[in-house]
Design a binder for these strands. Structure first.
Lengths: 145, 145
DNA sequence: CACCTTTTGAAAATCATTTTCATAGGGGGT
DNA sequence: ACCCCCTATGAAAATGATTTTCAAAAGGTG
């Protein structure tokens, strides 16, 4: 099980891309952080340690993460694209709290199966899908809040 | 079954908003057009008949359609928000062809049920959800293309 | 170590969408 | 029908996320 660091380095090598200290710093920061973060959030986190790294570089590097497969782009409609570490193979979907912004992941094979049925009925070849459920999480829907 | 025209007019009246010729023209054009269209597409369609109507007015009016309930905003991630006429009550989801851009609607009660189960497990209160399946439609995945 | 190519950072450019602001126009009250 | 007040409109500027430009600064390969 190659880790994300080596997957990314291999991706870079395979595509004749260079290993720079900026990319390394951004990778480390990304791997350390919790999931679902915006380019802006990552940029700000990195800025404290590496004030010289520019916004554009963070954007460009996150795109590379997505291309290499170690990260996935998520557009939950908040105006900003979020990136999350991809957990090889297994697909998951999201519950998104409109109250506190929490993002809860879940996996449901039955739903996946039913989606495949729907696609089959339409002779549609699936390449990807997304299921997002919006609402209020347990905390935000409790009377105390 | 009040039609969309009257629903919208009532919404306007109820909120002290005015009935203008621009809004009427935009409404008519919107009701006439096929579903899932961008503000830009609607603006261009209207421009031929009403060259005086501005881009901003189309944006503002589409937002009103969404607020009034006669239309729904959809963000399929193509950079532009699309609007579709809302078909009373029933929820549907989408198959989106990456080849020709076709958007196929479908409804599946079993999937909805499973979503409710997932939400219940997380004590999550659903307000809305979206399920989008991306891939190739029958036409685009056939060998001839 | 040289050289060629990619990368970087800052600033400018894009693109969809929103806002500003001065003018025009609904529509309720008279 | 006329006023008057407030909303609506259009053109242009503003916004905000993301992308591109471009000259200067490295990778890394031979």
């Amino acid at each position: 099980m190659p880790n994300k660091r080596s997957i990314f380095r291999e991706f870079m090598a395979r595509n004749g891309l260079k290993w720079t200290k900026q990319r390394e710093a951004i990778l480390e920061e990304f791997l350390d952080s919790k999931e679902h973060l915006s380019t802006e959030a990552l940029y700000l986190a990195i800025r404290s340690k590496h004030p010289h790294i520019g916004y554009a570089t963070v954007y460009r590097t996150l795109k590379l993460f997505a291309e290499s497969g170690i990260a996935e782009e998520r557009d939950f409609g908040g105006g900003q694209v979020l990136y999350e570490l991809s957990n090889r193979g297994d697909h998951h979907d999201h519950l998104i709290c409109n109250g506190c912004g929490a993002i809860i992941e879940f996996e449901d094979q039955s739903i996946e199966k039913l989606q495949e049925n729907v696609a089959r009925e339409h002779q549609f070849k699936i390449t990807s899908h997304r299921l997002e459920i919006f609402g209020l999480c347990a905390k935000c829907s409790s009377p105390k809040h």
